[in-house]
Nucleic acid binder design. Structure first.
Lengths: 183, 183
DNA sequence: GGCCTCATGTAATCGGTTACATGATTAG
DNA sequence: CTAATCATGTAACCGATTACATGAGGCC
């Protein structure tokens, strides 16, 4: 149920993993792709992309081969290592733990699943709903025990968001079903 | 309508400003107060508190006097400079620009207003609602012009959150009115 | 003896942001 | 002539996080 210890989690990694899951890319290209496809919801910055790639190579998640070019600097073409592919697959199928992560991380998962394993889309949405439901009842619980001013307010707010997210997921689920039925 | 250029904004500063708006405090105490009162929604960390105070003193927002103690290290008692007080007042009355900032920044404003200028509470809530309404219609607008897959999804999600926030603010407003009527 | 509280900090590490460097090619 | 595109990076800075340092005092 719990993934990594929440501490050493760099969500930006998954953007890179996701981009490379569609096939090898060199850094410049990878940045362009992400900017184009996800630029509206999550941006990395060029330098950061290169830096991330280096770090991830150290970590054994990606590897590169040099492709020489005439009149242009060499390209470093990156692809996923088995470890990287594994990590991506685990991530992309798992719901996010916090409502606040829906905006970036969950949308990114949806994006990658839409161009990859579409068949997991429905399952992801449902398990994400489940997480939201658990969040809601957890918040209900907490309100009973520590309902002092600010905490109550914050609790209400989080509940409102979690409920909104749940409804949005419901709409999303219906859309997904219609989409896959058409096919 | 626009505050600072969004770049050089360190929201954590306002926690310190807000805490000191209630009267001078030394660093250790300031940390304790924040932890106790806002710990559930926003935490700073002890080292960071000291570091922030130094930076803010450089920036002319706070100043300190040393208070010697026997058998204990000296205290550095901080208080707001006029510039700091001004900055806090401007901040605390202004709605946050993004829905995502409601969770921390807006709740903090509410907290500080509740123990300070309660009379501004109602106004803040209303202007925050106005911001949310503008957000909603802006999103509606954008959906008409660029409704490509992901962007539409992201737009729907943001709308759902903005709507939820709006309703939560409505409840908050009613509560506030009842509260001030009782008195 | 060992741990918690008071009260201040420094040091190390890490990630994000911005600016800059290089050097050829093509479009206006 | 200038600007943008291709393709890689380095360097500097800034803030957050974590761990560690100091040293007296009280509590179990």
């Amino acid at each position: 149920m719990v993934g990594q210890p929440e501490k050493e989690r760099n969500p930006a990694e998954y953007l890179v993993l996701g981009a490379l899951a569609g096939g090898p890319l060199h850094g410049y290209d990878l940045y362009q792709c992400l900017e184009e496809q996800l630029g509206e919801i999550w941006t990395l910055g060029r330098s950061q992309t290169y830096a991330l790639l280096s770090r991830m190579e150290q970590a054994g998640l990606v590897s590169h081969e040099r492709r020489a070019q005439e009149k242009r600097p060499d390209r470093k073409v990156f692809s996923l290592t088995p470890a990287g592919r594994k990590k991506f697959k685990v991530w992309v199928k798992a719901p996010v733990e916090h409502v606040r992560d829906l905006r970036l991380e969950f949308l990114a998962k949806i994006h990658f699943l839409e161009k990859g394993d579409r068949k997991f889309l429905g399952k992801l949405i449902e398990s994400q709903q489940q997480v939201c439901r658990e969040k809601l009842s957890g918040l209900e619980e907490r309100k009973r025990s520590a309902p002092s001013g600010m905490e109550r307010l914050a609790g209400d707010f989080r509940q409102a968001l979690a409920r909104a997210a749940l409804e949005w997921l419901e709409v999303l689920k219906r859309k997904e079903k219609d989409g896959s039925a058409e096919k």
